[in-house]
Design a protein around this nucleic acid. Structure first.
Lengths: 158, 158
DNA sequence: TGGTTGGTTCTGTACTTGCAGAACAAAAAG
DNA sequence: CTTTTTGTTCTGCAAGTACAGAACCAACCA
């Protein structure tokens, strides 16, 4: 209990917050996520989060809703108590990461369309564009293969 | 020649621009990149780019420098002519993509540090955090393996 | 010497982001 | 009913982004 208030852990929260932020989330979202990671017990109420991070209610509310909409956080309630206990949903975190990694981008297709539209006067350049497209397709397939591999591994371990 | 001014191609440029933008670049950067993709011949001067896209010189200058600093664009010159001919550097594009995909994020390590700092009162939660960390490490390794595989494939084809 | 070309850098500004703080809402407690 | 608890939503602002336009600069040109 309260192993999460030490100087070291608070720094950890900041660091993780920044990493999450760089992954494209808002600063406050990263802090809230990190706060729930170090939280001991692994859940916190709305205003525990607020006081832990020293940010406004609206920031906490927005962050929690952003995270819940991505299923990276959920909450439990205790019978007869209205208050919610928010906690990290690691399963959701992992599937969110899978989704991000899958990068089913439109790019490979668009590059093929570009080559299709180009003249054939610069075959070397066209070849390069196609290779770029192929690289992306290749990586997409490999990554989804890796995800399957992970899932198979997990299934076996159970 | 001038296969790049059709309505369809202009739309392609916009679409690609948006995709690049979503990948974290500035709007103008995406447009310039896309413009060089469809350019026929595959190079354009500074002011051809400017007129093609209808944006300001400063926007073009910023975009080109951003792209050149990442080696996604370079330029050639013709003897006795000061003007630069900018062109897509697909090799640089691909290595840029590799770099992005590699995601050597600090996250797995940070998650281990979090678990290290936590009490052992909630072993299930700790286990979940570790699994998240392991998933990321796994994907990192798989992705770098996939990149090696691609490189081996390319090496063989030559 | 001054003018033109090719591009960079500076300045101002419209737009966007991210959050605080306050007002608000719904449920529960008194 | 009134007050408190547990949040949500609205309003406003400070800071950051992205670009236009202009000033600028270096190289070449007449």
């Amino acid at each position: 209990m309260k192993t999460d208030t030490s100087r070291y852990v608070k720094e950890l929260v900041e660091t993780i917050g920044v990493v999450v932020e760089k992954a494209g989330f808002q600063p406050a979202v990263g802090r809230v996520l990190a706060c729930l990671m170090v939280s001991d017990p692994p859940y916190k109420t709305f205003d525990e989060i607020q006081r832990y991070l020293g940010i406004s209610k609206s920031a906490v509310s927005n962050a929690l809703n952003a995270l819940m909409s991505r299923e990276m956080v959920d909450y439990i309630t205790k019978p007869g108590v209205r208050r919610r206990y928010f906690q990290l949903a690691t399963a959701g975190m992992i599937s969110q990461m899978k989704k991000r990694l899958s990068l089913h981008s439109a790019m490979p297709e668009l590059l093929r369309a570009v080559v299709e539209a180009r003249s054939n006067k610069y075959p070397k350049f066209n070849r390069s564009l196609l290779e770029t497209s192929e690289f992306l397709s290749f990586m997409e397939k490999e990554i989804s293969g890796a995800i399957d591999k992970w899932e198979a591994l997990k299934a076996k371990k159970l």
